[in-house]
Design a protein around this nucleic acid. Structure first.
Length: 282
DNA sequence: TACCAGGTCTGAC
DNA sequence: GTCAGACATGGT
């Protein structure tokens, strides 16, 4: 039985929410997008004044939470518009339909470990390879997909296995992660405050400042996180006329500026800059 | 062809 | 503590 959730589209655009760089498992289908999370899938599409979520009966609550539908984004948007920074204001207008998803924690940890020094199309492909190899084959509304692998699926794999999937030098990091991405470990992380969570993540080989910020923001919804990658560094330099070189210092600069809204604003900025550059190349 | 991508680790200073 | 160089691989 397929269920439908309707939600006002003003602050929930399928395209903005999926293309802003926070999620790697989705694909265009007829009339909308197939979105995968952990072992589930749904289809989201624009439907008049609403965005419609189609999911299996029993998954309604999961996806209601996944798309962060309990939160009032008008307040976040209004704050961005009143920030006094023209670039952010324009970015917010363009990305008005962005929401920060509540994604599976293990999936985020592994996905962003793969993301380092890599581009989004290839990150998507590697994660798809990983799911095809270790996940379970499923079907939703006639669309075939693979679930994100369970922790136990990683336990007996060697770095060579991951190299075969295209992970390159990151294979050693995933190999190192196999014991600690267990359910117990992830539950332990869930109980930590933002600061302690980040310092715990930084103990893991392959996770540095930026990836830790991404996991905090996209896996644990710590919205006082502000990941700084090559794009954000470029925005900082070109659009905020900043002079700091050190990425950690740039993160601190933005968190001081935006506080609890750092993560939301970061997504507006990232999405806007990348869309702009894509258009410029065409 | 070279440079770049949602960076991090290592060893030298 | 800071910094250059290495690191796999495919997109553009």
């Amino acid at each position: 039985m397929i269920k439908e959730i309707l939600y006002d589209r003003e602050y929930f655009s399928p395209l903005d929410t999926l293309e802003c760089g926070q999620i790697f498992r989705f694909r265009k289908v007829e009339n909308g997008f197939l979105v995968m999370s952990d072992d589930r899938a749904c289809v989201i599409a624009e439907n008049g004044e609403n965005t419609a979520i189609l999911c299996n009966e029993g998954d309604e609550e999961y996806f209601y939470d996944f798309f962060d539908l309990k939160r009032d984004y008008s307040k976040i948007y209004e704050k961005a518009l009143r920030s006094g920074n023209e670039f952010l204001e324009e970015a917010a207008r363009v990305g008005k339909g962005v929401r920060i998803l509540n994604q599976n924690k293990r999936e985020m940890m592994i996905s962003f470990l793969i993301s380092q020094n890599n581009n989004i199309p290839r990150i998507k492909k590697i994660i798809e390879n990983l799911c095809n190899a270790l996940g379970e084959k499923r079907n939703f509304m006639g669309y075939e997909y693979y679930t994100f692998p369970k922790a136990v699926s990683f336990f007996d794999k060697t770095p060579d296995f991951y190299k075969g999937l295209g992970l390159g030098y990151r294979s050693d990091y995933i190999g190192n992660l196999k014991d600690i991405a267990s359910d117990d470990y992830m539950n332990m992380l869930s109980d930590l405050s933002g600061e302690k969570l980040k310092s715990e993540l930084l103990k893991i080989k392959g996770i540095g400042e930026k990836v830790a910020d991404c996991i905090c923001l996209f896996g644990f919804h710590k919205t006082d996180s502000f990941p700084v990658d090559t794009w954000i560094e470029k925005i900082y330099r070109e659009d905020f006329k900043g002079e700091l070189k050190n990425r950690k210092a740039i993160t601190e600069y933005f968190v001081n500026l935006f506080g609890e809204n750092s993560g939301y604003f970061q997504q507006y900025l990232f999405y806007y800059k990348r869309s702009f550059e894509k258009l410029a190349k065409k």
